[in-house]
Amino acid sequence: MSSRARVARVLGIDGVPILIAFVAVAVYFSLAVPSFFDADALRFYLNEEVPVFIITAGLAFVIIAGGIDLSVGAVLGLSAGTSLLASMNGFSTPLATLVGLGTGFAFGVINGFIIVKLRLNDFIVTLGSLNVAAGLLVVLTDHVQIVGTQDGSYLAIANTSVLGVTSAMLIAVATVAVLQLVLVKTILGRKVMATGLGQTPALIAGIDVGRVKYFAYILSGTLAGLGGVVLASRLNSVQPGLAGGYELAAIAAAVLGGVSLAGGRGGIWQAALGVLLLVTLKQGFRLMGVDPLVFSIITGLCILAGVILDRGVRRLALSLAAPAPAVTDNRELAPAMEAK
């Protein structure tokens, strides 16, 4: 194998461009910002983003299966509310956790049912359930004063320290690892990929596309529930609007990580890497004292740059691999929605 082909192969691996971007950003900040490696700050920022890691993993699953779930952020917030409320009212920690997971599960079932069985558009259905979940959290916090739980074991879910890492981070890592394994090592995972690549071929191949999609929505809902439990345990408080906008961060992260919104392409660890890149940017800018007003502009530019870079690198890999004029069909790499 020529060195050229080897480079092409490495570059062609999904997630490599994002990994390069991540390393470059991390190196830059560690040189430019003295407090970048402040252990407390690192722990704080990673902890803060654990719920985003968890929902990104679930959301990536849905996107790879060719769907979209905009409700994950709001469902996460609502699950945090129900779970914390349960713990406040004397539910044992396992039960309170179940309440949170159950809330997410229920939304996953409802989303899946309406999208798969009633054949309504996923974007709109999950936009609707986003509103419903966010609204229910407002109603909940409006009627019940959520003052936090006294149950130490509930608070321990996210806040136990294991060798300098928090249990919340371990939960995030475990979620990403398990989902990645399911995606690449199981038949189910292959069915998810096939479903995302094209529903008709998948149907012809004998895959119950509806069931696969249903499963993806339930998984994403339940993981939003898990994220909610972790968040409630860390904050020991819930307020309206909690986790609002997480879905956009998660989608941006997944796409940055090379997950295609058209479905059928990408992986869970790459999506998680996307979150890590966004977190690093956020932390770096904060520690540099960049005005959040500018911050929003920079983040927008970074997302664009990341996606364009990812595309460019893959083209480069293709052209390196095939010395003859590269077969870069525009359509194949092109925007998401039209292919669905």
């Binding site: 803060e48 309206p240 609007g241 904060r286 520690l287 959040p292």
Partner: peptide, 26 residues
């Protein structure tokens, strides 16, 4: 240094992150 979370009155996570950054920067 003035930093405000971007968003509405509920963008509280942003405030926590801003405060933590200033704590790290002593």
């Amino acid at each position: 240094e003035r930093q405000a979370p971007v968003g509405d009155f509920n963008a509280v996570q942003g405030t926590l992150g801003i405060v933590q950054a200033w704590v790290s920067r002593k």
